[in-house]
Simulated assay, not measured.
Amino acid sequence: MTSFDIFISALLPTFDTREAQSIARIVFEDCFGLQPPQFSHAQLTTAQNEQLQAIQEALLAGQPLQYILGQADFYGLKFKVDPRVLIPRPETEELVEWVLETIKTHYPQQNPSVLDIGTGSGCIPITIAKKTPRATVWGLDVSAAALALAEENAHLNQVEVQWQEQDILNQEAWTSLPIFDLIISNPPYIPQREQVLMPAQVSNHEPHLALFVPDEDPLLFYRSIAAFAQIHLHPTGHLFFECNEYNALEVKQLLEEMGWSDVLLKEDLSGKLRHLGCAR
């Protein structure tokens, strides 16, 4: 058996075959610079075999692959990730795609201003800045540690983003921010009681600050961000959210009751109600 096949076999007690193969492909490509046609006959050095063994042990101990490698792919870009920030998810790429389409449609010649609230790794604003260089892009987070990593990612991807350390729940601080054309957020939305239902790989390693909300008010961030956007969004602007599939309809109802128009929910590629967009 090749090193590639042995690595996959070692992962099978914990991962299914497809997931083990996907992990192996990422490791051999990102760590060893190999392409799929080379996997079956690759001769790893002693150092590479030791690295592969360390990765295998970390995976079997439940650590997320992206944290082990220190990076994640998002919308064709590379981002540094570690336990300071959530690991970017494919469904968030779909939200970014919707935002980029909106910019092309509604701001074909303008230089729109964009704010991402709860930016974490910076994957949303950095991708928008990379794909729409004419935009002025901001990223806001309550975590200074997350913003430090987001700034590293901006340098890595060679874009300019204005970073702001701020708690969006603190209304007194809202005046420090300007008016924007588009506001986006993938806020914390998992009720604390659901932590026991989550994969240990997520609940044991990813930052709870970015994941969980109080059981008694799961729409806390949606309500606060929507209220902020009523003041800090241009009259013709657009607001976007990523949602918990289990209360996405409640978020839609909340926004409609707050007076937002054209409130639209979209399913992600898995068929789950995940993304919401609306206008002033």
Rank of each mutant, 00 (worst) to 15 (best):
M198R: 00
L12P: 06
L264N: 04
K80I: 02
P214Y: 01
L12S: 11
N157V: 08
L254D: 01
F28G: 06
P199W: 01
V202C: 00
Q38P: 02
F228C: 14
C243V: 02
K131C: 08
I103P: 09
V251R: 02
Y75T: 00
A144V: 04
L249N: 06
E267D: 13
L95H: 05
V85Q: 07
P83V: 00
G139M: 14
P214R: 01
I124Q: 05
A54D: 13
G139R: 14
A210D: 13
A229R: 10
A54W: 10
I124T: 05
N247V: 01
T46W: 08
G237I: 05
L69W: 11
P187A: 04
V142Q: 15
D82V: 04
L12C: 09
Q56G: 01
E165T: 14
L77P: 09
E242A: 13
P125I: 10
L209E: 00
M198Y: 02
F228V: 08
E160S: 14
A42Q: 04
V137H: 01
S261Q: 12
E256I: 09
Q56A: 06
L95E: 04
L11A: 04
L273H: 06
P207W: 13
A47D: 15
P178T: 02
A24C: 05
T92I: 15
A72P: 04
N153Y: 15
H208L: 05
I87H: 02
D181C: 02
E94K: 03
R134Y: 10
P112I: 03
I55E: 04
Q192K: 00
P188E: 07
K272D: 00
L182H: 03
G277I: 06
N49M: 04
P191C: 07
P199Q: 15
N49K: 04
T92V: 15
L276G: 07
I184Q: 08
C123S: 09
F79S: 12
